[in-house]
Every structure is written in C-alpha cells, then in structure tokens.
Design a protein around this nucleic acid. Sequence first.
DNA 1: ACTGAATTCAAACGGCTGTATGATTCATAC
DNA 2: GTATGAATCATACAGCCGTTTGAATTCAGT
Lengths: 227, 227
Amino acid sequence: MNQAFDTDEAPIRVTETKDRILDSAEKLFSEHGFAATSLRQITTEAAVNLAAVNYHFQSKESLILAVLLRKLEPINQRRLELLDEVEAEAGSDPLSLEAVLSAFLLPVLEAKASRVQLCNFPRLMGRMYTEPGDWMLRIFPQAFAPVLARFQPAFLRAMPGAEIEEIGWGMHFSIGAMAHYLAGGALLKTVTLGLADPSDTAAALPRLVAYMAGGLRAMTGQKEVSQ
Amino acid sequence: MNQAFDTDEAPIRVTETKDRILDSAEKLFSEHGFAATSLRQITTEAAVNLAAVNYHFQSKESLILAVLLRKLEPINQRRLELLDEVEAEAGSDPLSLEAVLSAFLLPVLEAKASRVQLCNFPRLMGRMYTEPGDWMLRIFPQAFAPVLARFQPAFLRAMPGAEIEEIGWGMHFSIGAMAHYLAGGALLKTVTLGLADPSDTAAALPRLVAYMAGGLRAMTGQKEVSQ
DNA sequence: ACTGAATTCAAACGGCTGTATGATTCATAC
DNA sequence: GTATGAATCATACAGCCGTTTGAATTCAGT
C-alpha cells in the first residue's frame, strides 16, 4: 500500500472514493462552474486518482448529473412531504399560499444553511438554472417534473380562480428569484448597501416567501396590468 | 490576398473586424457560456483570423468585458432617461412603483425583442449574473453602480416608509426574476404547460412589472396602491 | 509613388483537457 | 493460501486551449 496513514482511523472504504469525488465536484462546480472545472482539480482536491472519475462515473457530464441528483432527490422528496402536511392541515379549504411556498423553499434553504459540506449544493443549483447545455432538460424529467406536477395544482388551490398560464409565469419568476438568491453573489450585499447577510437563510426565507406570495397574488389577481 | 471575393461589396473596413468579433462572441457566449466558448469558435464564426482577438482586445476576459459594456452602456443610459421622465411627470408626488420598474425593465426587454443580432445580449446578461469569476464585480462599478445609485432612491420614493434593507432584498429578488426570464431556458414553456411564449416580450413586461411590484409591496409592508 | 503605421496572416508555443490502457493492489470467498 | 473480481494506480494519448511571433499585407498621409 503506497498511500499509507489512512488506516489509523476506522476502516472506512467501500464507496468512499465515489463520495469524495462527488463532494469535491459539488464544491468546485459551484465555485467555478462546470466548464471551468477540470477533472484534475476535482481528483486533486478529493485526493483520489484521476482515472477514478471515469471508472466510477463514465464521463464528466455523468459526474455532474450524479452530483445534482444526489442532493436534489432528497430535497425534492422533502418538498413533497412538506406539501403533504400543508394539504393535510388544510383539509378541503384553500391552501395557504405562503405555506405552499415555504414547503418549496424550506428544504433547499435548510441545505444551504447546513454545515455538513452540502451547503455548496444550493449555489450550484442556482447556477445550473442558467447554465447552457441540454442536460438541464435531461435531469428535469427525473427530478423536477414530479415536484412540478404536485406544486402546480397546489398553487392553483392556493390561488383559486387564477389562470394556469399566469401561475406558470409566476412560478418562473419565483424560481428565478430563488435561484438568484441561492447563487448568491456579492450582489445582495451591494444592493442592500451591506445591510443584508447572504448566508442568513433564516432572514431570507420569510422575505422570499412574502415577495413571491405578493408577486403571485398581484400578477394573478388582475389579468392585465397596464403600467 | 488569399481570401479573395470579399472586395466585390463595398470597401467596408475600419473597425469592422472588431464588431464582427464582438457580435460572434456575444452570440456564442450567450449560447454556450464563457468558459465553454473558445476563441477559435468565435473567430471562425466571425470569419476573422484567430490572432485578431488578442490584437484588438488583449485577452479573452477583456473580450467579454467589451461585449458586455458595448450593449449594457446604452441600455443603462436609456434606463436613466426613462427614470428621468418618470420623475419629471411625478413632480413632487411619490413615484409610481410600476413606472419605476418599467423604466428598469423596458430597455433590456426592447433589446431582447429587437431583430438586429443584439437580441443575444439579454440572454448573456441573464447568464452573467450567476457566472463565476470576479469580473462581474469588475464591470459593476462601471456599468451597474450608476444605475443602482439612481434607482435605489427611486424605489424609496415609490414606496415611502419602506426600509432600505427590505428594498434591497426586493431588488435582489427582482433582478433574479428578470435574469431568469432573460436567460430564458425552456423552463418557462414547461412551467406554463406550453401556454407561454418566452420570446413574447410584450407579454412578459406587464407580468414582470406586476409580479415585482406585488412582491416589493408585500415584502416592504406597503398597502396595495392603485396606480 | 513612397513611407510608416495599422492591421491581418499562417504558424507555432507550452500547457492543459477528458479519456483510455494495462499493470497492480485490494477485499473477499473458497 | 489462492483464485477472483473490484478498485486504484501511473502513464499515455490525441486534441484543443489562449496567447505569441514575425512576416505579409493594407491603409493613410505626403
């Protein structure tokens, strides 16, 4: 064994290499983007052999797909669980728009706030929405479509009478607002003159919820808005 | 001369090469992103020599800076002109929030709608908000800061009593909503179940204005104001 | 027509990219 | 203990990257 000194701990092994690669890839992709991150950077940071990437994952593109789905899957599952609770509490009444929005936002903001090295994912996710390439469309059916299929009717129940197209526009804008916050450049601090802390997700959640709810209601309340 | 056949037209010259490079760079950067676009792709598309990029611009990074500033400068100038008009019409009354938002959005949506090969810029701009690298911070003082300096007080005038930090959060979310629409993946069509046309900026403007106004008012605790 | 500066050109530079190969080491079951 | 399949390793492969060079060309001023 030529890489000694790693057996003084527990005999951790098995898929440890895969996870190390995924962690490093998540971090570096979120910091520098997909195209600007090389496999050598990733394997160096992960302290694994270069060929391990193409062995465990087949290609660089498959790697980022794995990176995204690893974290997105549980987040989306939690979103659906929270939506279940909201719908259960509401009974047959209209849903609370704020509650639906919170169910959508909370899981990803929780991930952002968590310390355990998964806090890179939301930033990556925020960036991915605008990244080029068709692999966004490739992970959509697997990860996004089920969430969309549940939340679309939920928004409709929360805003009775609103048209589907208007709700769609509103969801689109809301995803943009969320993604931009998650990608979180220094812009928030600039735009608030230093008053806001981008990492304070506890401060961001109620503001995002209030903003989205107000925007959705205003847009769906009156069909045509003359400015 | 080994690339003949280009003198049968008018003797257009001078900075023609620079513009051709800028046009192709804008198009390709907006389609594939910064890191994923090579100078060879750009010079091939522009039908100019590879070395022309490093001759007219010093580096790839300087090139995208030039690409951005070329279009952003007039757009931001138009934003300020429109804001001038809004403020002139308002006199000493509070500003119309919708009017301020329109002054911010109209110039860039006009650019998106225009046919003349500048319609790539908004998509690029939308992408740039989330791109990595510090050059975002480098063009900020030159291009964004003056706009921010004028619009921040305008928003304050449009929402009397609101706190600066809340307005900042709202502007941040609004920029995200706008950028996500501009970057315009196929998501809008998916999320509206095919009912919305992403290229229809005339449909987008009133919706964006209504959404942002509603969001800003809801977050800053403003009452619904009839315009 | 000639000069000197501005521009364009083909070619090359070192370096980094994603991926593939085949030998080697490992964990495990007989 | 040894056979077996999985995992790791060093190394190499083309090929593309941004940038540079110096000669060839074009342009403007006289």
